[in-house]
Simulated assay, not measured.
Amino acid sequence: MGIRGIIEGKRQWRAHVARVRALPPDYRIVYEEIEKYLFRVGPIDPRDGQPLSGVLDFFEESAATGKGVLEVIGHDVAKFCDELAGSRTAEH
C-alpha cells in the first residue's frame, strides 16, 4: 500500500469514528464493545472495516427508529458478537 492508500485509509477511518461518536450513548457503548471484541478475537482487518461498517449502518438505522440498542441486538451482546464473527469467518 502506497502513501496515498495509507492517507485514504486514515481519512475513511476518521469518518467512521465520527459516525460512531454521533450515535446515541447506548448504541455507542455497545458498538465500542463490539469493536474491541472483533479486534481482539474476531476475523477482522481494520483496513477493510468489515463487519464494523455494517454494524454501524445497522445501528444508525435502528437508532433513527427510536429503539434501544438491546431491543435490536438482544440482551446478550457477546452472543451477537460471536454470531457476527462466525458469519465473517464463513465468508472467508
Rank of each mutant, 00 (worst) to 15 (best):
V41S: 14
H75I: 03
E83K: 12
F58P: 01
G42T: 08
G54S: 13
I7P: 00
P25G: 09
G42R: 05
G74A: 06
R11E: 13
H75S: 04
A90C: 01
Y37I: 02
R40M: 11
Y37H: 12
V72M: 05
Y27I: 05
I34N: 00
T65A: 12
G68Y: 01
I29E: 14
A85C: 09
R40G: 08
G86D: 08
E83D: 13
A22V: 02
D82Y: 12
H92D: 10
H75L: 05
P51I: 03
A22H: 02
E83F: 07
W13D: 14
L84I: 11
K67Q: 14
Q50E: 15
F58C: 05
S53Y: 14
D26P: 00
R4C: 00
P24E: 10
H16P: 00
R19C: 06
W13L: 15
D57P: 00
A63W: 08
V17H: 09
R21S: 08
D57L: 15
K10Q: 14
E91T: 07
L38Y: 05
A18H: 02
E83C: 04
I6S: 12
T89W: 13
E8D: 12
V77L: 05
F39I: 03
E61I: 15
D82L: 14
V41N: 08
R14A: 15
